[in-house]
C-alpha cells in the first residue's frame, strides 16, 4: 500500500477545526488587546489627546455654567458623565480608525479566527482606555468641583455604566466606519441608543453621592445591569453580519 505523505496546513494557533476551543478563542482576544495596548504605549497619542480633551471639557463647563457652590452640587455629576461620554466617543472613533489604515481590518478578517473574538478584543482594549481616562477625570473633578467621588458603589456604577456605553459604542463604531461621514455618524447612532444607560447611570450616581438608600436607586441600578446584559447578547449575535464584506 502506498503511503504517500500528506501535508496538512496547520496554523500555529488553530486546528483546521471550524470551532476553536475556549483557550484558543481567548488567546486571539488577548493578542488583539495586546496589539492595541502596545501600539498605544509606543505612540501615546490617544491617551494624551483624550487627557487634554477631558481637561478642556471640564473647564468649558465650569466657565459656561459659571458655577457657584449650590449649582455645582446639583450639576457636577451630570457634567462628569458628559465628559465621560464625549471622551469615550472620541476614543471609540480612534480605535477603529487605526484598523482602517493599511487594511489591517481586512487582515484580521482573513485570519482563521472567530470574528466575535475581534469584537471582544476591540471592546476590551477600548474599555481599558476608557477606564484609564476615568482614572484621570475623577480626581480632576474632585479638584475642580470639590465633591468626593471615591465611594466604592459610585466607582462600581461608573465601571458598569461605561461598560455598557463602550460595548454599544464598539458595535456601532464598526457600523460608522463604513459610512462616508464616520466621525459624525458615530454620535448620531450612539447617543440615542445609549441614552437609557446614561440616564440611569446619572440617576444612580446622584443618588449614591447624596447618600440615598438602596431602595431609592435600585430601579436605575437594575436598568444599567439589564442594559449591559442585553447588549452583550445583541453584540455577540450581530457583529458577524456587520463586519463581513
Amino acid at each position: 500500500m502506498m503511503n504517500s505523505p500528506v501535508i496538512t496546513m496547520k496554523s500555529p494557533m488553530y486546528n483546521n477545526d471550524k470551532h476553536p476551543t475556549t483557550g484558543q478563542y481567548w488567546r486571539t482576544v488577548k493578542t488583539i488587546i495586546w496589539k492595541d495596548l502596545s501600539i498605544e504605549m509606543r505612540k501615546k497619542t490617544l491617551i494624551s489627546a483624550l487627557f487634554i480633551f477631558s481637561v478642556m471639557v471640564t473647564l468649558v463647563f465650569t466657565f459656561a455654567l459659571d458655577l457657584d457652590k449650590s449649582t455645582k452640587d446639583n450639576v457636577s455629576v451630570g457634567v462628569l458623565w458628559v465628559t465621560f461620554v464625549f471622551s469615550s466617543t472620541l476614543g471609540l472613533n480612534q480605535t477603529f480608525a487605526n484598523e482602517k489604515k493599511h487594511g489591517s481590518l481586512e487582515g484580521m478578517l482573513l485570519a482563521p479566527i472567530d470574528h466575535t473574538a475581534i469584537f471582544v478584543g476591540k471592546f476590551i482594549s477600548t474599555y481599558i482606555f476608557v477606564i484609564i481616562i476615568e482614572i484621570i477625570i475623577i480626581p480632576m473633578f474632585y479638584f475642580f468641583y470639590g465633591i468626593s467621588l471615591f465611594s466604592p458603589l459610585f466607582l462600581l456604577i461608573v465601571l458598569l455604566g461605561s461598560f455598557g456605553y463602550t460595548l454599544v459604542g464598539t458595535l456601532l463604531t464598526s457600523i460608522a466606519i463604513r459610512t462616508q461621514v464616520r466621525e459624525i455618524m458615530l454620535p448620531i447612532l450612539l447617543f440615542p441608543v445609549s441614552m437609557p444607560i446614561i440616564i440611569a447611570s446619572v440617576q444612580c450616581s446622584n443618588a449614591i453621592l447624596s447618600g440615598a438608600n438602596w431602595g431609592q436607586f435600585s430601579n436605575a441600578f437594575n436598568l444599567v445591569i439589564v442594559y449591559d446584559i442585553i447588549f452583550i447578547g445583541v453584540a455577540i449575535m450581530t457583529f458577524e453580519y456587520l463586519i463581513q464584506e
Partner: peptide
C-alpha cells in the same frame, strides 16, 4: 453592505 448594517441597527433600535 447597507442591507446587513441597517438590519442590525433596526434590531438594536427596537429595544426602545
Amino acid at each position: 453592505r447597507r442591507r446587513h448594517i441597517t438590519a442590525v441597527y433596526g434590531i438594536v433600535a427596537f429595544i426602545s
